[in-house]
Design a binder for these strands. Structure first.
Lengths: 219, 219
DNA sequence: GATGCGCTGTGATTATATTCACAGTAACTC
DNA sequence: GAGTTACTGTGAATATAATCACAGCGCATC
């Protein structure tokens, strides 16, 4: 949990919502909107106005009391908060179907992340170039990584020896991992892990389909 | 929020953790483990033993007081809770890079979801077969969907006219949407939406890299 | 320059989630 | 069959998150 210098905590849930806010603020900016009131923005992201105001206030006050919040400036402030106001290099482990889809995905670049280097274990893929990036063998991780100054890695590889790969990444200076592999991995000291599990989301949706509207839940 | 017949609520956070539990329970089952204690399972998913016990207790008691929890039976119970003990058909909208990666992804099938039908807007793709599934034009949504009995859809398409597509899906009987498009969409009445936003997760990680360990947070 | 309006930021309150801690008990020992 | 151990399930306590509600203010209007 990060703290402001005044000692106020900023919760991770607030940080997650901040991504949402930024997303719709980008839309508003595209549409030429210069200022927005908390109740308008809150309506767009389906959050209560009070919560929005508290979230934004948690890292300083930005709202003009009669104009609302300045759209563009808020985008910049949130980007700075994330550290995505400048592009940062990330590494991709695994050039399978998902890995290659991520390489071609433009959303990362738009939000400040550049996949700079790719690793795989499949000899057939080594040396090939995917969307402008050459694929290296995972053996050469320690040798190649320093050239790119990456602090974050995306895991889209197979599940074999996953944890030892994570440990290795930690030793090689990786501080954060976005994990697409549906296995539980354990962060080494000081490392942060976020899991993306499509199926888990589907399971939640399937649960909601069954019990979400009917309030009685039978075993 | 679903309720048990006794009136106890089961929270969505509990449901999300249930996916984690099931994942590591599958691992244990593969390894031939028959029973597991709450503190062991809790350690594996990095959750407190008390929370694990409360989560599991929230839909009935299952633990044997001296053997712990029966691994296989718990997997079955959680599957039933999700409604994934039988395979269910889902629709995929968008056969771009991401959509095709999802078609080839085996994780869905393993967890009870079968992508049965694919739609796209790109004339070049209509009629082609991806991983055994023929791609239909999005125009034919209403005509084709009923053949497959799907209640869930995965959105992996472009952002244009996204909300009207969502409305259309709702009218065509889709009750849940897994949305990969990084735009905010609004569910119609009775519909559930889950968003998957890779970049948002990266933003959170990037934030943690900056402020996660150092507790002081400067504007 | 006085009045009114409607906004933000935030203390106080309520709701929700997590942890603590222990009663109750099955299995195992002697 | 009495004693010991170590577990589960759960009421009580705590911590965290969300909401309410309002003071205080900038701007518009007259």
């Amino acid at each position: 949990m990060a703290r402001e210098k005044s000692g106020k905590k900023i919760s991770l849930q607030t940080v997650e919502r901040m991504s949402l806010y930024r997303k719709v603020l980008e839309d508003l900016h595209r549409d030429g909107v210069a200022n927005v009131y908390s109740h308008q923005l809150a309506e767009l992201v389906r959050v209560s106005p009070a919560q929005l105001r508290r979230d934004l206030a948690s890292f300083g006050s930005f709202g003009n009391i009669s104009k609302g919040y300045p759209v563009y400036q808020l985008i910049l402030t949130i980007s700075r908060l994330f550290g995505t106001d400048t592009l940062q290099n990330v590494a991709l482990i695994g050039a399978g179907n998902l890995g290659r889809a991520l390489l071609f995905y433009r959303g990362f670049e738009e939000r400040g992340f550049h996949i700079a280097v790719v690793f795989d274990i499949d000899a057939e893929k080594i040396g090939r170039v995917f969307a402008g990036r050459r694929c290296h063998h995972i053996q050469d991780l320690e040798a190649v990584l320093p050239d790119f100054g990456v602090a974050m890695a995306i895991l889209a590889c197979g599940a074999q020896n996953l944890q030892s790969l994570v440990d290795r990444l930690g030793r090689a200076g990786i501080r954060s991992i976005l994990n697409f592999v549906p296995r539980q991995i354990h962060a080494v000291a000081g490392m942060n892990v976020e899991n993306v599990d499509f199926s888990a989301k589907m399971e939640k949706l399937s649960f909601l389909n069954r019990y979400g509207t009917a309030l009685e839940f039978e075993i």
